[in-house]
Design a protein around this nucleic acid. Structure first.
Ligand SMILES: [Mn+2]
Ligand SMILES: [Mn+2]
Ligand SMILES: [Zn+2]
Ligand SMILES: [Zn+2]
Lengths: 149, 149
DNA sequence: TCCTTTATTGATAGTGATTCTCATTATTAT
DNA sequence: ATAATAATGAGAATCACTATCAATAAAGGA
């Protein structure tokens, strides 16, 4: 029997399923979160010691193109990767001091409705073909609120 | 009579108004858009030839802290700076292919209302003190829609 | 205006994340 | 198994941005 559907359709898309790709996919699947390339590098080395950092970047880029992983940039100079779960669409809350990232999914129905309207309007007015959006909130997390006066 | 209010209150905040700062402020004010540090560097050199790139970065950082300029990261590896106009709050539409950035301000009332609700909820639920948000749409601009099939 | 204090600047070296190059290796189809 | 070639790892190269530091120039007072 074939692997789970979420493992992607490599063959069908002309890609080979290799050891490094399998190991990286495992890591982003198990370690939920908003991982940096380095986080993933160090974790993958446990199960695939010889892997190189270039392979991490190349593979993450491939996964993003395949829709298996989402890439984010919350500032701070490092890209962050998150497994594209089958779960709820969500957005992010970023602490400007410590970089902590929290998922949230409040008011999704209202948001979805508004987003849909905006997308239609932007499509019409600016002739843009929109395929994604990102709504982030920035501020200070609980512990950073005291530290930073 | 003192300079326009938008030039900021340097003295009051303990900063000196200098030639480089004046030249940079002029550029970000006149050349509206979403400029990179390099865009600004090359433009400022016309009126202030001896300026160094480090001063561009330092000054933009100061302007951001003073609220005169907003700093964005739309991906692509370069920060983008936009003069904080007194005009409407707006968000961005980014072409994933050519990097073009378009301002939009549709459905602002509805958006503001929703954002306010979300902020209150996030504040309550996650104990975050939110001070800004960013809503970006990503897609393909008109001309890039054909190029990239 | 001249002087003193010290914030600011420019040149340049340094940093850190990401990408590129290329010889070697591993997959896939036959 | 073999051939064709996609993928990998090591390390060099990029590139945006930051840190360092001696020289310069605002600001305020005499
Ligand atoms: Mn998330
Ligand atoms: Mn804008
Ligand atoms: Zn924090
Ligand atoms: Zn475009």
């Amino acid at each position: 029997m074939p692997g789970p559907r979420w493992r992607g359709n490599f063959k069908e898309r002309g890609h080979r399923m290799t050891g490094p790709r399998d190991a990286i996919l495992d890591v982003v699947n198990k370690k939920q979160g908003h991982l940096t390339a380095d986080d993933i590098f160090f974790e993958v080395r446990k199960s695939y010691p010889g892997i190189g950092i270039a392979t991490i970047y190349r593979t993450l880029d491939l996964f993003v193109r395949m829709g298996l992983v989402n890439k984010f940039d919350f500032g701070g100079g490092k890209s962050r990767y998150e497994f594209t779960s089958k779960e709820k669409h969500h957005h992010h809350l970023v602490c400007k001091n410590c970089g902590r990232v929290v998922d949230y999914d409040s008011f999704l129905d209202e948001e979805t409705e508004l987003i849909k309207k905006i997308e239609a309007e932007l499509n019409r007015k600016h002739d843009f073909k929109i395929d994604s959006h990102q709504l982030d909130f920035y501020g200070l997390c609980k512990s950073c609120q005291r530290e930073v006066k």
